[in-house]
């Protein structure tokens, strides 16, 4: 099937070597990450040794300890409280910040860059690390969890909403500017009405993420179901862990479903 056989046939596109180069790079990195000493040890003998013990624990997972349920109610409610409060505070804080971070609503390059840089840094740290540090700062309880979630929320909501503002219609803003409005008046009268739908959409999305995140924040002492996960895992009560996982599943799926239904109606 060469070009000589079929004179009209165009030559095969070049650049196949790039794919092989990419594969070679990936293989090289993988080899390093699996190398003994500096890599992830795939010590199969440890797995074989632990297999009996592990199989027993996994077996316990399949039989949840229902009698544990009453003790999980209060932490479960605390988890949801943390998620709701953090979502509300995060949403309120995000409105002005997203307007500062978008070009249409803030033409000043310096303040815009400053807000964006700070938020990029805030987003680079995972929520549980915030919680771990905050627990040491303000003590055990729901408060460090709420602050960690607020930081996490603001990072996401501001990024998504400011992107929505940027991709929005510049028309109303230009009209308001032509009519002699100041930037604050333009934002307030012409641009804010367009911001609400994406804002509510993203705030609800952040709430879904919060519910998921708030279930494990207690692992570092920040309140909620995570505290209980930590307790049952120290005693290897995997039957109780199974019940907690089931509860997380039910709550997360229900909240996702309700929030998705609400977001669909808002569109």
């Amino acid at each position: 099937m060469s070009a000589a056989e079929y004179p009209g046939l165009p030559a095969k596109p070049g650049g196949r070597w790039k794919i092989w180069l990419a594969i070679a790079i990936i293989a090289a990195i993988t080899a390093v990450t699996l190398a003994p000493g500096i890599g992830v040890d795939f010590s199969l003998d440890a797995i074989v040794r632990n297999w009996r013990n592990g199989a027993e624990k996994i077996g316990q997972l399949l039989v949840p300890d229902w009698s544990f349920f009453p003790r999980t109610i209060e932490p479960l409610i605390e988890t949801l409280q943390m998620a709701v409060i953090a979502s509300v505070i995060g949403a309120i804080v995000s409105v002005p910040l997203s307007m500062w971070a978008a070009r249409l609503t803030n033409p000043n390059r310096i303040t815009r860059g400053l807000v964006r840089t700070i938020l990029n840094i805030v987003r680079a740290v995972p929520d549980l690390l915030y919680a771990a540090v905050l627990v040491a700062m303000v003590g055990v309880g729901a408060l460090p969890g709420i602050i960690a979630l607020v930081l996490f929320n603001v990072g996401i909501v501001v990024k998504l909403v400011s992107e929505a503002i940027e991709s929005g219609d510049p028309g109303p803003g230009e009209a308001a500017r032509a009519a002699g409005g100041t930037q604050t008046q333009i934002n307030r009268a012409a641009l804010l009405p367009d911001i609400w739908p994406p804002f509510i959409n993203q705030a609800l999305y952040a709430f879904e993420l919060n519910v998921r995140a708030s279930t494990v924040l207690g692992l570092v002492g920040a309140g909620g179901l995570g505290l209980l996960i930590d307790a049952v895992r120290t005693f290897y009560r995997y039957d109780q862990l199974a019940l907690i996982i089931l509860e997380i599943l039910v709550v997360v799926v229900l909240i996702d479903w309700a929030s998705a239904a609400m977001r669909k109606r808002l569109k």
Binding site: A46, I47, N50, W51, N53, G54, A55, K57, I58, L61, L128, R212, A213, T215, V216, L219, I229, R233, Y236, Y238, L241, I245, I248, L249, V252, V253, D256
Partner: peptide, 16 residues
């Protein structure tokens, strides 16, 4: 729906 840290807690009973 399950956070990865919970998955890790389950798996560590086998892998340490």
């Amino acid at each position: 729906a399950v956070p990865e840290i919970v998955i890790a807690i389950v798996i560590l009973s086998v892998t340490g």
